[in-house]
Design a binder for these strands. Structure first.
Length: 414
RNA sequence: CGGAGCGUGGUGCACCGGUAGCACGCAGCGUUCGGGACGCUGAGGCACAGGGUUCAAUUCCCUGCGCUCCGACCA
């Protein structure tokens, strides 16, 4: 991609409402637009590429534990929500609307109702279980307040996975698998999470865990051991000493990046999801649900990976792997050399953002590259003398290498 | 939902009871050319909306709408 053609520009000043560092950087670097309205954001091309990377990681990990992707709608009938008794009893409340016939609808905040109803009509035998279904879909939540840019919004993409089982033991087993898959997802996005027991809120169920990234911007507080890895939700525990190692605990701010629930039979009973077991008896289907907010995950990644100059994307989710900067200074030879490298990399399938802008100073190009945070920066100029300067975003080291070596390094990394 | 504040070119801000300026950005020309260069020129605003006070309102008052912050809440 040629930077000169890329939609979305870096900014020097950001709107005053941007408080969280991830919010500021994502706007400044041209990944998202300022809020369209409170808690509603447009992803610009750069931001959307990162989103797609995260989406891919999630799909791989969920597919690996047997998740089947489907797609469920946003508009949902009132009747379904009355059956689960959540039409009026859910927090944050539903966004509600009426169609032209005055029929009431809800904008989906989650899909327990739809999927349980669906499964109830498709699953009749123990042979149909277990089953894991998921989708990545737009959710609408009537939050009291939106905060921190992408950290808490009213319209957002969530990966929601639902599992269905013939027994609570089988649910337990799958729950552990999801827990591990989630750890993998966050690790692949470049940060470690603390897994804490949580309160289940209006989603219900017996047991739930949250995945927290410790970070001062976070809105949640967890109790963490000062020595070992132990942590717990503050709503669950008030302990001075770590139950594992006895060391003192402290309160730390954190961002909730995922939440998983053992629902048991709650929705199945309300929505009539039963199956016939081996012994011919009718039994209720056990369920779990598992959610990750993609935009929040994206913002959290920025919270975890930035410095004073800008974002420092992990390779796994970077919008491009390389930023090629041409300091051609209107010298056709340099320009041609840069074009050549760009074309070769493109042909080799390397994701490259090529800063081909003319009449823009070196300083500005460097500053933009630092801000955007692509892992590898290549510079071509008169000084590099038919070689290419290689610098990684997270280090200061600069190497001068040949175009062939560049191609080699980048293709072997793939 | 309680409390507080703010709405002025694209963005960030200033000013003022006498119909608006600055910086960045944008356009043109020229000089620059390895860490956000510089000069000149130019375009761009019914001051959120409606009502009121006043000779006169962007400025004061009221209402609405929008946004932000603190709190409470939170799958």
């Amino acid at each position: 991609m040629r930077y000169s053609q890329l939609f979305g520009k870096t900014l020097k000043a950001v709107p005053a409402e941007a408080e969280a560092i991830s919010h500021q950087l994502l706007i400044k670097a041209g990944f998202i637009d300022q809020a369209l309205t409170s808690g509603v954001y447009t992803y610009l091309p750069l931001g959307w590429r990162v989103f797609k990377k995260i989406e891919q990681i999630i799909k791989e990990e969920i597919n690996a534990i047997g998740g089947q992707e489907l797609f469920m709608p946003t508009l949902q009938p009132k009747d379904l929500w009355l059956r689960s008794d959540r039409w009026d009893h859910i927090d944050p409340p539903l966004f509600k609307l009426k169609d032209r016939h005055e029929k009431e609808l809800a904008m989906a905040p989650t899909h327990e109702e739809v999927i349980t109803d669906l499964v109830a009509r498709f699953v009749h035998s123990y042979k149909d279980l277990p089953l894991a279904l998921y989708h990545i879909q737009n959710k609408f939540r009537n939050e009291m307040r939106s905060t921190g840019g992408l950290l808490r919004v009213r319209e957002f993409f969530m990966k929601d996975l639902y599992s269905f089982h013939s027994s609570s033991e089988d649910l337990d087993r799958y729950y552990e698998k999801v827990l591990n898959a989630y750890k993998n997802i966050f690790r692949r996005c470049g940060f470690e999470v603390k897994v804490v027991e949580a309160v289940s809120g209006t989603i219900g169920g017996s047991f739930s865990h949250e995945f927290m990234m410790v970070c001062p911007t976070g809105e949640d507080t967890v109790i963490a051991c000062t020595k070992c890895d132990w942590a717990a939700n503050i709503e669950k525990t008030e302990t001075q000493a770590c139950p594992l190692c006895g060391q003192p605990t402290k309160k730390v701010r954190s961002i909730e990046n995922g939440h998983i629930f053992k629902l048991g039979s709650k929705y199945a009973e309300k929505l009539g999801a039963y199956f016939t077991d081996k012994d011919g008896t009718k039994k209720v289907i056990y369920g779990g649900c598992y959610g990750i907010g993609l935009g929040r995950l994206l913002a959290t990644t920025v919270e975890a990976h930035h410095d004073e100059k800008g974002i420092v994307w992990p390779k796994s989710v970077a919008p491009y792997q390389v930023q090629l900067i041409s300091l051609s200074n209107q010298q056709p030879a340099v320009s041609k050399f840069a074009e050549n490298i760009y074309e070769k990399l493109e042909k080799a399938g390397v994701e490259v953002l090529y800063d081909d802008r003319e009449g823009v100073s070196a300083g500005e190009k460097f500053a933009d590259a630092d801000l955007i945070g692509i892992p590898v920066r290549l510079v071509v100029s008169e000084k590099t003398d038919n070689k290419v300067e290689w610098k990684e975003r997270k280090s200061q080291e600069v190497k001068l290498i040949t175009p062939e070596e560049v191609a080699e390094r980048l293709t072997e990394e793939k």
